[in-house]
Amino acid sequence: MRGAVVLALLLIAATVASLLIGDVHVGLAALWHGLWGGDGPGALTLRIIRAPRAAVAIGAGGALGLSGATFQMLFRNPLAAPDIMGFTSGAGLAILVAITAGLTLPLPLAATVGGLLAAAMVVLLSHRPGHVTPALTLVLVGLGVGFATSAFGTFLMTRLSTSAATEAQRWLSGSLAARDWGHALQVWTMSSVLATALALQVRALDLLELGDDLAAGLGLRTERARWALAATGVALAAAGVAVAGPVPFVALMAAPLGARLTGSRSMGGRLAAAAGAGACLTLVADLAARAAIPGLQLPIGVMTGALGAPYLLWRLSREMEKGEL
């Protein structure tokens, strides 16, 4: 319980910090008045730029965190996350295709479609009829699909003009720059619908944790439950990517971070913690990316990539010590 309070306080602190800190100075007093009206540069910055940006960060981070947690529980493997499994690179490729072909398709939609296609490809390629797919095969096939898609992406990058390539690069690394209330509304709507769907499947996750045989014995249709959960997880990742671009590693790190902070045992508690941790992580990483180099607003993906890679390495060495890899 105490952990949950800590996580909630962290989230509030991160939100306030990301509203206060930036190129335009906003004081604590101005924060309160600025949110509810008033003008002057501080209040406008707050209402038009920082508040929607923070709202998008919380929504997207929460969705990515939930998505990662779903996959990690589903495959009972801390390395199973949409970033590792090709979803993110598929989304990136779709963005590039849309920019190169000059499609009028909105980029978030393209990212979602690309991510879904890549995820479907990974699942189909690693599936063998009559066998349960080992989680690690899935991870490796995901990497393979990632390699192939990024090769194609590299090809497309050589065909772009300088300005288009810069635009593409910004999108590809995942960014929260210039998000408005429309984006916030979009990600919050999608995330809440999907989170509700996930909440309805908590019992299935609980049963699957006992092992497939036992779960089936207790009356769960395991194959169908797995597909439904995987679909929910992919849709959650898509909701996040659609507004923030393929931000790497938030989905991978959120659930373990949430579990460590709250120590929650129940499935629902772990999911909620993952969502909270994902939101925190996204807010803090975005803030750090904005503030790291004065005068230069780095996209958030640069920061989560730099944070996530050491985490992945640490996780690997842990798994190796446990003898699971």
Partner: peptide, 14 residues
């Protein structure tokens, strides 16, 4: 393979 993927991700973000 995964150690390579991790280092790749780190270097790519830098």
């Amino acid at each position: 393979t995964l150690a390579g993927a991790a280092l790749n991700a780190l270097l790519l973000s830098l």
